[in-house]
């Protein structure tokens, strides 16, 4: 105890007299950070998939092997001097429940020549702001040639639940993380106006589009295909996530967002692949309301490859 007391005296002496002052800045609080929605590099995804916070899906069954590279991406084989194509999106783009060679990045590569590498940067629960943060902090460094963006349902659910992409609780000392989404709202929302929801989505979409353009990357937007026939599962999801929407209203909003995507692409002269029109709500391409089956991925990747080959 004497030694302990001595140590305390020494400690507080150093603090008071600023002994051993360190060069630079000293601070005494919590560090805040931004969620980086990515797979853990070099760790089997199925080993931690139960920790995913994905608002768009109740549970995810990952089919191993599913390993991300050092950038947290599911990627195709890399050789020298390849042009990189990045995929951004939520769990629909990850294809975690499919075999490794059935996933979209592998399928897409089959429709393109060997001068490309396809990197899948999608992640369960990702919205446009997550993707933007990932672009700025990780993916811009890869200097991709083009980025294909498939965001709709997750953004819709987050905005319907929270009214915004961002946490309203900023600055709470106990909260050491600045989460973009998802977060628990400070009070439950009874209703979010369609116009507010569409405006938030529109801003986020324009933001990522302009970011890519200014970094000399071609943005390619997809309208999202959804299996609207599976309304029972959609209702179950909405109930589980405590989102005040009916499945019918969700379907309508989903279609409105797709229409917003078309209009914004036209206004900005950005490339569009209209998957909603191509897939036409065909349930034979889906495992559930959102996830494509193997046939669905094949069709989708063929459409994307054909478009890219046309634009060359």
């Amino acid at each position: 105890m004497v030694l302990f007391a001595l140590l305390l005296i020494v400690e507080y002496s150093f603090r008071y007299f600023n002994a051993f002052p360190q060069t630079g800045v000293q601070s005494y609080s919590y560090e805040r950070f931004i969620a980086l929605k990515e797979f853990i590099p070099s760790v089997e995804v199925s080993s931690y998939s139960d920790e995913f916070e994905a608002i768009e899906l109740k549970e995810i069954e990952v089919k191993p092997p599913c390993l991300a590279d050092s950038n947290g991406l599911l990627s195709t084989k890399q050789t020298l001097n390849q042009k990189r194509i990045l995929l951004l999106g939520d769990v629909q783009t990850c294809n975690l429940d499919l075999n490794q060679n059935e996933r979209i990045h592998q399928r897409l590569l089959k429709g393109l020549d060997s001068s490309y590498q396809v990197l899948n940067a999608a992640f369960p629960g990702s919205d446009l702001i997550h993707s933007t943060n990932k672009m700025v902090n990780v993916l811009l460094s890869l200097r991709p040639k083009m980025v294909i963006i498939n965001h709709n349902l997750t953004d819709l659910l987050i905005l319907a639940k929270n009214g915004s992409y961002w946490s309203k609780v900023i600055g709470d000392k106990k909260k050491a993380r600045v989460w973009t989404t998802p977060f628990a709202p400070t009070h439950p929302l009874t209703q979010v106006e369609d116009s507010l929801l569409l405006k938030e989505y529109s801003n986020a979409m324009r933001n990522i589009g302009q970011l890519l353009s200014h970094w000399h990357i071609k943005p390619i937007f997809l309208t999202q295909a959804l299996n609207h026939n599976d309304s029972a599962s959609i209702s179950e999801l909405l109930h589980a996530q405590k989102i005040n929407l009916t499945s019918h209203r969700l379907s309508k909003l989903h279609q409105k967002i797709n229409q917003e995507i078309r209009e914004i692409c036209e206004q900005n002269n950005w490339s569009l692949i209209d998957l909603e029109k191509e897939i036409e709500n065909n349930p034979t391409y889906f495992n559930n309301y959102l996830l494509f089956n193997s046939k669905g991925v094949q069709i989708v990747s063929q459409h994307i490859a054909d478009s890219i080959n046309t634009w060359k």
Binding site: S27, Y28, Y30, F33, L36, P41, G171, K173
Partner: peptide
């Protein structure tokens, strides 16, 4: 991994 929000730590 996470993105460090390079800022003066709150409070």
């Amino acid at each position: 991994r996470y993105i460090s929000l390079r800022e003066a730590p709150p409070a």
